[in-house]
Amino acid sequence: MEHILSGIALFLIILSTGGFIVYIIRQNNSVFRYAYWVLFTGFLFQTLFLVYRYIALGTVPVINLKMSLAFFAWSIIGAYLLFQVKFRLMVLGSFVAPVAAFFMILSSALPHLPDTVPPVLKGIWLLLHVIPMFLGDGIFAIAFVSSVMYLVQERQIKRKTRGTLFKRLPSLETLDSINHYSLVYGFPLITIGMITGAAYAQAVLGSYWRWDPKEVWSLVTWICYAILLHERLAVGWQGRRSAIMSIFCFMMLIFTFLGGGILLDSYHSFGDFGGGTKLP
């Protein structure tokens, strides 16, 4: 059942990515509508899949890298759908869908592992920690994508090249305000995730902070975003500088997400892509 659900979700998301790419080339609104609804349907299937997994495992399905990537892709698409409602910026999909599809494919390429859930990973705490964290990450992915779009468009305007993308990309101000809103919405979410994470550690492991590599990197990433938000709101950073910073922050986030999960020796890590979580 779960294979069917995730298979359909993967297929629909890749299909819609194709649609979004056709849309940006052909600029045909009906292509966009198809791609959008296919993506929406794919999102629903992915939601069903995650709910199914949640019920089967008895906990949030993020206990290994495969699951985490699938959940990450889901939150990126979710964030995109929310932004689409607010900004109605059709071309954003052409940039977000490939990113989501990339993580979906990565997730599906990883080997399937037995679902052994250690008891620490059960219960309400993991939910409270993981859900805001992932939603925040999904929204930051939008900030990243809009920053890349910003830099591309800015370069075209500055260099006076006015290539094919010039026509298709929206105005700089639109992209900058997407960046702004994603920070404003995403930052409180990861802050909540960090706080509940600390409380979770206290409840389960007996201390709020253990200097675990993933904890440290998460804090560094959080500080980077805090700086960016501060500069934007208080100092008046705009445009190029905050786009670059936003891309840098997202790189940190991905490093923490993947690196913290694979490379670093951490109790957060997924082991050798293993099902079990190493615990001290």
């Binding site: 468009q153 305007i157 010039f166 990309l169 929206p170 105005s171 700089l172 101000e173 639109t174 305000s177």
Partner: peptide, 9 residues
């Protein structure tokens, strides 16, 4: 046209 690519509207 350029102004429209720089500003929202």
């Amino acid at each position: 046209e350029l102004a429209k690519k720089i500003f929202y509207g």
